[in-house]
Amino acid sequence: MRWLTADTRSGWRAGFAVGPTFLAIFAGFGIASQATQVPELAAVLATLLVFAAPAQFAMVDLASQGGTLAQVIAIGVLVNLRFVLMSLTLATRFQGVSRWRLAFWAQFVSASSYLLTFFQSRRPEPGNLHDYYRGVVLVTFPAALLGTLGGLALGVGLPDIVAFGGTLFLPIYFALLLASEVRGRYEIGAVLIGLLLTPPLEALAPGWGLFIAAIAAGGLLRSIEGWA
């Protein structure tokens, strides 16, 4: 089996589009860790082992407010519940991959590796989707690690304008993918529900809004589709 296939390189190229956002977000995590006196080793291990910025921020935030060990573990796992949905979607698209490879690469499921692979799966010739997914991970995971290290090194010295630009790569890239990929009224409906429902739900239930809005969109549209 070849390690670097054409599909892996294709995923790699897609990963580079979102890499700057990973750098910026995880630099923010490094800065937040330093500001709240999280040991540097723990901050780096958080990115290595958890690899999920929302959960990492939630853990650091709760720990800084005096949360207990059990509470910090619980919040980290609960914020990551969305991974079930993402892995479920990917599992239906990864065919003929050994259990060991699936078990290893499962650790790197993130919103980006999942969504980029999902969009790739809709192309007329998607290629080997697990290779593509690996390519995305080979960029995003090192970017997350570099960002964390950079954030720890920079402290609060990251220029605001750089941080601002860095956070825009991911949303603009997803907006471009949506603009070119959405087909049919149900998919447009899903996009509109996600766009409109996520921010207010995030305000009501921080960390959960995205997940709840997505489940609501899927459930509602599936029901309408069933009635039609």
Binding site: L115, F174, V191, T198, G218
Partner: peptide, 25 residues
Amino acid sequence: LHFLTYTSFAIAAGIVSKALLVSAG
């Protein structure tokens, strides 16, 4: 599969709208 497709689009759209409206919590 249809449910998962719709949730995937909603998540991508939610990431966009969240990034437009929310920064650093």
